[in-house]
């Protein structure tokens, strides 16, 4: 009898271990519990990844809910009309999950994020127009899109951004910085057709540029530190 009892004990032990492990996994799902300062674990990592995806820069994605993660959550809440408490509760996580989800077709099939151009455009905006007024950021994104529509320029966002010497931020590597939330929004708005630049295909900082060619272009308007030209 004793010999037969052992396998049963093993099965029960494995079952127990499995259920603990599985409950651990379930526990780790984002949105199951309130996350705040001091929280740790895979669900915090997921929270941080989603914040980064939307442009809320927070330092390393390390699974630890520290002051930077809290600040990012506060900014996210502020910009999305949520109660600003620095805690990742049900509402905040629901909104975060919704905004970082994939796009779907009419029958609900996922078709990818559909934001390839938006991401690069946002990087360019972030690198070229950080610290500029938001409307100036939309205008910078619009300049890149106006170039696509202009016969004298290449026809894709990447070809325009990476055209040699087109943007100083490509030459100094700033284009590779993660885009901020406002640059992502600005890119989105320009893709939707907003163009505060008034049809410009160039922009420059009058205080920092002595290039004759760029000064010779017909000027349209100045927004913040950038002059937008034809």
């Amino acid at each position: 009898m004793k010999v037969h009892a052992r396998p049963w004990a093993t099965v029960i032990a494995i079952g127990l271990l499995l259920s603990i492990a599985l409950s651990g996994f379930a526990y780790a799902a984002l949105g199951d519990r309130l996350l705040g300062r001091g929280s740790k674990g895979p669900e915090v990592t997921e929270l941080q990844k989603r914040l980064v995806q939307l442009g809320y820069v927070l330092g390393p994605v390390d699974g630890k809910f520290g002051s930077k993660t809290e600040a990012a959550i506060r900014r996210f809440q502020k910009e999305h009309g949520l109660r600003v408490d620095g805690l990742a509760g049900t509402q905040t996580i629901k909104e975060l999950k919704r905004l970082t989800g994939q796009s779907t077709n009419a029958s609900g099939k996922a078709v990818g994020y559909k934001n390839i151009d938006k991401n690069l455009l946002a990087r360019a905006v972030n690198a070229e127009a950080r610290g500029e007024p938001y409307i100036g950021q939309v205008a910078v994104a619009a300049v890149i899109l106006n170039r696509i529509a202009d016969p004298a320029f290449p026809k894709t966002v990447a070809d325009i951004v990476y055209q040699p010497r087109a943007f100083s931020s490509v030459d100094d590597g700033q284009i590779n910085l993660p885009p901020s939330a406002s640059s992502i929004r600005a890119a989105q708005e320009a893709i939707n057709g907003s163009d505060p630049s008034g049809g410009a295909v160039f922009f420059f900082n009058p205080a920092k540029t002595s290039n004759k060619y760029i000064w010779s272009r017909p000027q349209i308007k100045q927004i913040g530190n950038h002059m937008f030209t034809k």
């Binding site: 016969p151 004298a152 320029f153 040699p164 060619y213």
Partner: peptide, 14 residues
């Protein structure tokens, strides 16, 4: 558009 240049302007070739 990928050939090295000193600056980017309106290109009549383009």
């Amino acid at each position: 558009a990928q050939i090295p240049a000193q600056q980017t302007g309106l290109s009549y070739v383009g």
